[in-house]
Every structure is written in C-alpha cells, then in structure tokens.
Nucleic acid binder design. Structure first.
Lengths: 139, 139
DNA sequence: CTGTATCCTTAGGGATACTG
DNA sequence: CAGTATCCCTAAGGATACAG
C-alpha cells in the first residue's frame, strides 16, 4: 500500500487522494478541534466509525505523516495520536469547510461565536489554535 | 435519492457528505479555476472521469444547488454548467487545499506565483476570483 | 484498551455500447 | 454533444468476534 498511481499531479487531486472519503477528515477534526488523541476517543464520536475503518485511516494518516503515533507514557499500553505539522497545517482547510457549512447547512451546529471570530480576525484565530496544537505536538 | 440519513450535523460531516469522494471536488475545480462549463470539457480533464460518474456527480451538485444547469443559448442542444453562489463560496476551501498541497506535495504543479499571491494578499485575490465567477453566474 | 480478522453487503467506479 | 444503460469488478464499510 501507499503509492498507488496518482490520477494527476493537481494539488486538489493530491488532497483528494488522502482525504477524498467520508471518514478521514472526521478523525482529523477530532484531533484538531475536539482534543481527542486515542483510538477509544475516536470510536466514541457520534458518526460511529467502524473499528476496521478507524484502524485503516489512522494507518494511512500515519503513513502520510499527517499523524504521529506514539506509546502513551502515562498509561503504558495505550497509544496516543498527535497531529504533525503537516496535520496542523490542515487547520485553514477545516476552518473554511466549517464556514461554508455554517452558511449553507440549515442544521449546522457551528457556534455563531466561532463564525464571527473567523470573520473578524481570521489570522489571529488561526494562530491561536495552531500554536496550541504545536504545544501539544511538542509535549 | 438526495436525503439519506446524515451521520451527524457536524459542519465537517455536512461537507463530507457532499464532497467526501474522489471526484466531486475535481468538477468544482474545473468550473472554478479552469473555466470549464460543459460536460465534454469535464470529460477531457486529465483525471479521466467516467461518463456515468460525471453525470451522477453533476446531478448531485445540481441537487445540492452548488451548480446550476441551463441550456446553452449559443449552441442550442448543449447544456452549460455554472457555479451558484453556494458553489462560488467554496473558493476559500479550494484555495486552502491548494496551499496545503503546494507545501507538502513534492510533485505539486501549483504555480509559485499563486502561492505568493495568496500569502501576500489573500483577501484581494479571493475577491478578484469570486467577482469574476459572479459575473459568469450573472451572464 | 487497542487493535485484527472475518464475513457479508453495498457503493464506487471503469469500460463500453448505445440513444436522443 | 450530452448523456443513459449495462456489465462487472473492486473498494468501502458495517457488524461482530476475537486477540494481545
């Protein structure tokens, strides 16, 4: 696995070949915006990902170096998953997806506060979140 | 078709249930950044989408009101596809995907000029492109 | 708890032929 | 040109059981 033949070298296609499915970005979301870091926490998300899919996507994300997997020193047998810098850099993508859905999905659960924050001071907010993620990565 | 049950009301999930596949966003890209507007032009893209997939995705995009389909007045029997405002509003998402891939894909085909433009003056560039798209929509 | 493994079903998608 | 319609295969994914 890993290097299948690419359909093209288009940057959109590059992203799609990693994230072009219904689950991968939800895992990234959980790590980036919900503070989740373990297999068990990912399983508990409301979308109810299956165990085999979760394991598969975590492996793909790790292989793509978006996610780093390490033994959890605190709990011994547990693993912990962290976003790499490459993963942290997906933050703007996630934010724009959220903004778009907030605008067009009538059932959206996005907090208005978040939307106004982004509109008012996008750069500052991005920096705040990503520096928090960077601290997690360094820890 | 149309309203299958949603996995969740999360905004990321909303976007994923429309774009969470390997093809849909490539069609949006063609309309947004490559000036394509017809079935035949979409078929010619280097990723080689199959006719049935293309027809299916165009129908889904139309149903989601991201794309508007109209008879082409100039050529009679031809149809033309345009991005709606909802579609145009995907521009920031596409741009961030491109920026991310430009940074991490060694084979990326993104022009450096584009990257520096976005970094230097993101808002201006977004406005330029989207106002051009709006003119197309109005035409 | 963190996964693997298996089974089974459905959805995605490539190839190609055909129609208005 | 703009699609439909098939056929057929593979990948995706849900359910559940099992293992370290």
């Amino acid at each position: 696995m890993g290097a299948q033949k690419r359909k093209s070298d288009c940057p959109i296609n590059y992203a799609l070949e990693l994230f072009g499915d219904r689950w991968t970005l939800l895992i990234v979301r959980d790590m980036m915006l919900k503070g989740k870091h373990s297999y068990g926490e990912f399983l508990k998300s409301e979308e109810k990902i299956a165990t085999n899919i979760l394991a598969d996507r975590l492996a793909l994300l790790e292989e793509a170096e978006v996610v780093i997997k390490l033994p959890d020193p605190a709990h011994g047998s547990k693993y912990i998953y962290k976003l790499s810098q490459k993963g942290i850099d997906l933050l703007p993508v996630l934010v724009e997806l959220i903004m778009w859905s907030a605008k067009y999905d009538p059932d959206s659960t996005v907090e208005k506060k978040f939307v106004t924050q982004v509109k008012k001071n996008r750069e500052t907010l991005l920096k705040e979140i990503s520096s928090r993620l960077k601290e997690e990565l360094a820890a």
